[in-house]
Simulated assay, not measured.
Amino acid sequence: MHAVLAVTAAPVEGLARAIQLSVAPVFLLAGIGGLLVVLTNRLARIVDRSRRLQEQLAEAAISQARLARQELQLQKRRMGLVLKAIELCTVTVLLVALVVVVVFMSAVAAIDLALVVVPLFTAAMLCLMVAVLLFMREVQLAAAQLRRRF
């Protein structure tokens, strides 16, 4: 009777292990989700500032209009960086989700899919690194803009 329990417990243990392996990257997904919230908030602030600048530009004198156009160009650059970072974070989420699926399938089917997981995870981390670098560059531009005002 003990042998029967061992046979039926093995698939359950294998499934539990598969779930453990595939859930670990979910914490990474939560972190990327937080980064996406920060990026979308920054994008909203850039859009709001750009709208105000466009309103000021319509009413501004020639000297003020030139400054407003320069600042609008900087806002456009910042917006491009944030949008690209959001795009890369989204690709990262998709790649990590794919890693989760492949790891789960690999563990359940007892197939070694390391040759698939390694490049997927590496690509995900590269996308995340570039996204964070773009975010850092956008923050640097915002800080430089702020220093010019004071």
Results as ranks from 00 to 15, higher is better:
Thr40Arg: 01
Ile46Leu: 06
Ala68Asp: 08
Leu94Asp: 03
Cys127His: 05
Leu120Thr: 00
Ala16Val: 10
Glu87Pro: 00
Cys127Met: 03
Phe27Lys: 04
Met79His: 10
Met129His: 08
Ile19Tyr: 07
Ala65Asn: 02
His2Gln: 14
Arg147Tyr: 09
Leu74Gln: 04
Gly31Leu: 09
Arg45Cys: 00
Ser63Cys: 07
Pro119Thr: 03
Gln140Tyr: 07
Leu5Arg: 11
Glu71Tyr: 05
Ala109His: 08
Ala85His: 00
Ala61Asp: 15
Leu21Thr: 04
Val117Leu: 05
Leu29Trp: 09
Ala110Cys: 05
His2Cys: 14
Ala124Tyr: 02
Gly31Lys: 05
Ala10Arg: 15
Ala60Phe: 07
Pro119Glu: 04
Val96Gln: 01
Leu67Val: 12
Val100Thr: 06
Ala110Gly: 05
Gln70Thr: 13
Gln140Trp: 07
Ile32His: 00
Ala110Pro: 01
Ala114Lys: 11
Gln73Leu: 13
Leu88Tyr: 04
Thr90Pro: 02
Leu128Lys: 07
Leu57Arg: 09
Met105Arg: 15
Glu55His: 10
Ala107Trp: 08
Ala58Ile: 11
Leu5His: 12
Leu53Glu: 01
Gln70Ala: 10
Leu5Ser: 11
Leu83Gln: 13
Gln145Asp: 12
Leu43Met: 07
Arg42Phe: 00
Val130Asp: 00
Leu28Lys: 06
Ile111Cys: 08
Ala131Phe: 00
Arg17Trp: 09
Leu98Thr: 06
Met129Thr: 13
Val118Asn: 04
Gln56Glu: 12
Ala58Arg: 13
Gln70Phe: 09
Leu95Gln: 01
Ala114Leu: 11
Val139Phe: 04
Arg148Ser: 11
Leu72Pro: 02
Arg49Thr: 07
Arg137Glu: 15
Ala85Thr: 01
Ser22Met: 06
Ile32Asp: 00
Leu5Asn: 10
Val116Ser: 08
Gln64Ala: 13
Leu134Phe: 04
Leu134Val: 01
Gln70Ser: 10
Val26Trp: 07
Val23Pro: 00
Pro25Lys: 02
Arg77Gly: 03
